[in-house]
């Protein structure tokens, strides 16, 4: 009987010790796993990668995509050296951007759906979104001609276009401002790699960081109206200014007219008042002051 008790005690102690050890291991690893769930923003997943949360449960860390990339830009994260989850594939746009191969060779041999096999058009990849993030250092904003990012963009004109703006410093030149369009940008990072600055002014960011999101209840009246083909609530009412009797506002010219008597350009009565039509509309406000 006594021997049996000792055995039971030893059994329970062993059980408890093992449980303790394994729980400690699980706890530590659990926290570590939670910590390594966030991909640092400068790391970009290969094209077709599932959203990060799902990617981490689908990627087997085998590196077949790394082998299949003809430009050798992909890398598997190494323990303690890279901040991405150990063993998962990524690239750094500044040192090696995705060349956007038409056949997307990194995807078909992926043994799981971590890289979405249904992605066959590389232009539909969304690895991230380029953002002209430093407008103080981008030399285009200083009025200098650069346009390197625009010229290397594989979807030039669609994903990245130039917006001409007046150069207020010189007063007579144009600024050639690079503008990224999120509906076309794949996040390949070629612009980031090509940026001529010491540190790039255009960077590919994860879409969650690069984009805002409109309140889901938000509707733009003019868009809804166009969709519907007319006003949705009450019929549009023409706006009336509170003008003296017999005087009208003409939207097209921004002038005030005496009714039924279109003013001749030089007519003193209806001449555009100093300060434009607004000075008449604001009449009374100044007097009140």
């Amino acid at each position: 009987m006594a021997a049996k008790t000792v055995n039971r005690r030893r059994f329970l102690t062993t059980m408890a010790r093992t449980a303790c050890g394994v729980s400690l291991f699980a706890l530590g690893l659990g926290f570590y796993a939670r910590g390594s769930k966030a991909l640092p923003p400068e790391y970009i997943r290969p094209p077709g990668a599932l959203e990060e949360e799902k990617f981490l449960s689908a990627c087997t860390r085998c590196g077949i995509c790394v082998r299949d990339c003809p430009y050798d830009i992909l890398k598997l994260a190494e323990l303690g050296r890279d901040n991405a989850a150990t063993g998962t594939p990524y690239f750094h746009a500044r040192s090696g951007a995705c060349e956007m191969c038409e056949d997307i060779p990194c995807i078909p041999n992926c043994p799981t759906g971590a890289l979405d096999h249904s992605l066959t058009d590389i232009n539909k990849a969304r690895m991230g979104l380029a953002v002209v993030i430093d407008q103080e250092n981008c030399i285009a904003f200083q009025g200098l001609r650069c346009e390197v990012c625009y010229n290397v963009c594989p979807l030039r004109g669609k994903a990245l276009s130039l917006d001409y703006q007046p150069n207020k410093r010189s007063g007579r030149h144009a600024l050639f401002i690079p503008v990224v369009h999120s509906d076309a940008c794949t996040g390949c990072g070629l612009c980031e790699r090509a940026c001529i600055l010491e540190r790039e002014a255009i960077k590919v960011l994860p879409i969650r960081l690069a984009k805002g999101e409109l309140g889901h209840h938000y509707r733009f009246g003019w868009k809804e109206k166009a969709k519907h083909g007319g006003a949705l609530v009450t019929p549009d009412k023409e706006h009336h200014f509170n003008l003296p009797k017999g005087v009208e506002y003409d939207y097209s010219t921004g002038r005030i007219y005496v009714k039924n008597k279109p003013a001749a350009p030089n007519a003193p009565q209806a001449a555009k008042p100093k300060g434009g039509a607004a000075s008449i509309l604001n009449r009374g406000i100044q007097e009140a002051k």
């Binding site: 449980a19 394994v22 699980a26 690893l29 659990g30 570590y32 796993a33 981490l56 449960s57 150990t86």
Partner: peptide
Amino acid sequence: WMLGAVIVLAMATGSLAYELV
């Protein structure tokens, strides 16, 4: 138990947690 912990961790974190180490 380790194998059990590996599976529970994968469920709890929704990722291949054990593959980190």
